[in-house]
Amino acid sequence: MTAKLTNNQIAWRAAQDITDGAYVNLGIGFPEKVAQYQPPGREAIFHTENGILNFGEAPPQGEEDWDLINAGKRPVTLKPGASFFHHADSFAMVRGGHLDVAILGAYEVAENGDLANWSTGPKGVPAVGGAMDLVHGAKRVAVITDHVTKDGKPKLVKRCTLPLTGVGCVTRVYTSLAVIDIEGGRFVLREKLPSLSLDALQAATGAELLVSGPVIDLIVPEL
């Protein structure tokens, strides 16, 4: 496999589906990049588990306020219209169906919508944070991920083998090769890199890709 999207490009593609005024939670790490690529004229309101709505980017070095951090414990700033709230209200927003979108990373996503993204197995210190809460309640739970692992193994699989974060929760996956919806317990291909054949994409995917409509060319700017 040759051409694939960079993480910035995957984040850009995911950002195109976020509507103006949407309430959005971005998982810690890679998903945070999505905030940088909102299309001009659209402004989502970002939620962080530790009690802020409508936070903005990091402050310049030396201007950090350590009472103003995100769930990854990195310093952030506030946008006009920001609000603070306690943790129970924060997770009421999550589980109560008030968020429009949650975008998360993944170790594995299964064709039935199961997600594994919190534990790679019994070794070390287990840590879950808000991952298991976030997969429930957001109107749309999307995943951004490389299409395969560093060893070239599929991350889109028939059934997850790693400990689950949630059952049947993911509805769309943005990968380095394609955009795939999960519908009726199947992977449905929506977009793929134009240079990539369907056979090559299927070979990199651990479960059958259904083509039920037009497959759009996945074209992303250089980033």
Binding site: E49, H87, A88, R95, V128, D133, L164, G166, V167
Partner: peptide
């Protein structure tokens, strides 16, 4: 899970001994 932790503490303060949440259903936790 973080939201469950928050709600368990809230429930403790509010005199609610148990509650149901979708979080962690089908997982090891």
């Amino acid at each position: 899970p973080q939201g469950t932790l928050a709600e368990r503490i809230r429930a403790g303060g509010a005199g609610i001994p148990a509650f149901y949440t979708p979080t962690s259903f089908g997982t090891d936790l």
